[in-house]
Write a protein that binds this DNA or RNA. Sequence first.
DNA 1: CTTTACACCTAGCATCACTAGGCGTAGCAT
DNA 2: ATGCTACGCCTAGTGATGCTAGGTGTAAAG
Lengths: 112, 112
Amino acid sequence: MNSEALKGHLDLLVLSVLADGPLHGYALIDELRSRSGEVFDLAEGTVYPVLHRLELAGSLKSEWTVVAGRRRRSYRLTRSGGARLQQQREMWNTFSSTVNSVLRSRPWPTTP
Amino acid sequence: MNSEALKGHLDLLVLSVLADGPLHGYALIDELRSRSGEVFDLAEGTVYPVLHRLELAGSLKSEWTVVAGRRRRSYRLTRSGGARLQQQREMWNTFSSTVNSVLRSRPWPTTP
DNA sequence: CTTTACACCTAGCATCACTAGGCGTAGCAT
DNA sequence: ATGCTACGCCTAGTGATGCTAGGTGTAAAG
């Protein structure tokens, strides 16, 4: 999988997973990997900055917890994050169907 | 349409359009706009560097012509460009279906 | 003679995923 | 005791790439 392919779509994936319940970063990575059938295996250095950016933008809210002597930062979707997710979903649908229509279009009218 | 959304997918679109016949840059922009239903309305400064890059990579071959006193640089797909297109198509299919599967997945088994 | 469409170009910018390192705890094997 | 691995967090810097903003020039329309 090309590394640039995710550009502009990673927020959607993160918001989408967190819409099903709060997770901490490490668990989010696991979840993304498993939900994608091992296709999206993201580095921590990829995911943490996204979470920080989304929280700064008000889409997420984080909370520190300690489990078994290990600190975790758990992220949950805010109301505005939900709206953002909805908007991102629509963008994805438009984008992907538009790409598909370009890929399928031919220079001549579709063969009768 | 988010500006980052195209990242990593623009080559696919360009190669795909040129697979249906050679075009010069300006005409390619028109063709992309019309095939996408006006969604992809790309700036010249976006497209020309892509064409140069793809030619440098051996995916395209260009040829100068003059039509009605105006110089044009016409691009056609090379054999290796065709292979590249095929590979990019597969990447797109994997990518888009994987995103969709993440979007559709739920933390609990799909409701019966 | 000015504006618009055609047709090309590039330097620099901004964004964002990724690399490559760093810090610290817990549990297991040696 | 001492590594090693998994867990769990972080950030500075790099690289790729689409976009902005500007430039050049011809032809047709007003």
